[in-house]
Simulated assay, not measured.
Amino acid sequence: MKKDNYILVDGFKHYRYLQESYSENEMLSKSKNYFEWANKRRSVRHFSEKQIPIEVIENIIKTASTAPSGANKQPWTFCVVKSAEIKKEIRLAAEEEERKSYNERMSDEWLEDLKHLGTDANKPFLELAPYLIVVFKRPYEIDADGNKYQNYYVNESVGLACGMLISAIHNAGLVTLTHTPSPMRFLEKILKRPANERAFLLLPVGYNSEESYVPDIKRKTMEEVMKLY
C-alpha cells in the first residue's frame, strides 16, 4: 500500500529515501578531501586534561549510533566515564592485565611487532583524558520479565559503530586511542553492567597534549589494500 511518502511492507512503514548526489568532479573532490582529512587521524597516547563539553561527547555517540546493525538491533551501549575515581580504578585494573600480557601472554613475535610503537603496560592516559568511552556489545536483550531476545551480527555491528565513533572523535578535533586490555571483564565489574553486556573497546577521548608524539608509521599502499576485479 502506497501513501504520500511511504509504503507498507508486511504492515511496516518504509519511507522514501533520497541520497544527496554530486557530479563526478564533486565526487572526486569530496572523496579526496575526506581521505586527506581522515589520513591525518592518528592514535594518540599523550592527552591534555583540558575539559570538553559533555554535549560534544553526546553528539559523537549519537553519530556512532547511526551505524548499521543486524536487524537494526543496535546491540551496543556506550558508557562515558568522567569520574576521576572510576578512571583511576579502570587504569589500575587495565595496567594489571597489561603487565600480565607483556610478561606472560604475548609471544616474542608479538612483542617484537610492538616495539616500533613504543607501547608498554603503563596507561596514564586512562586517567589524564577528560573522558573514557567504554563500548559494550549486547549479545542478547533481557526484558522486564527476564526473557532473553537474540541480537544478530553483534561483533560486526559494534565494530561498525566503533569505526564511526573514532571518525566522529577526529571530526570534533579530538584524539583517541583504541585500547583493548585482554581480558576486559574488569570493565563490566567496575561499571556494574548487566549480564547481557560484554566489554568490547575502551577509548580515552580528549585533546592531545602540547608535547604529543606519534610513531613514524606508513599506511599500506593501494596495491596492498585494494584488488579490482
Rank of each mutant, 00 (worst) to 15 (best):
V175G: 04
N151H: 15
E24M: 10
N151Q: 07
T180E: 10
A144C: 06
V225W: 06
N5P: 00
S101E: 09
K3M: 09
V225A: 01
L160Q: 10
W110K: 13
F12D: 04
P75F: 06
N25H: 11
I60A: 01
I142A: 08
K2V: 12
I142N: 11
F200R: 00
K123T: 10
K148G: 05
S23Q: 07
M184T: 00
Q74G: 01
R42F: 07
R219T: 13
K30A: 02
P204D: 05
T176R: 05
L18I: 13
N196D: 14
K115Q: 06
L132I: 08
A172C: 03
E58P: 00
V175W: 04
S48Y: 04
D145G: 12
E89D: 14
E26Y: 03
L165Q: 02
L165P: 01
S182V: 10
K218H: 10
R105H: 06
D216I: 10
S29V: 06
I57N: 01
L177F: 14
Y152M: 05
R198S: 09
L201Y: 00
I90N: 00
S31P: 04
E197W: 09
S21H: 10
H46P: 00
N151K: 07
N171L: 08
P181W: 04
T221M: 02
I166G: 02
K87D: 07
V80I: 14
Y102C: 05
V175I: 12
L160K: 01
I57L: 11
H179W: 07
A64T: 07
L203T: 04
V225N: 06
H14F: 08
V9H: 05
W110F: 13
K123H: 09
S48N: 03
D143I: 07
E223G: 09
E112W: 02
L202M: 14
L228E: 12
V81S: 01
R219D: 12
N147Q: 15
I90M: 00
D4M: 03
K73D: 09
E197Q: 15
N25A: 13
L18T: 13
I86V: 15
L128H: 14
N155M: 02
A199R: 08
S101P: 03
T66Y: 10
H116L: 06
F12Y: 12
S23G: 11
L128M: 12
Y152S: 03
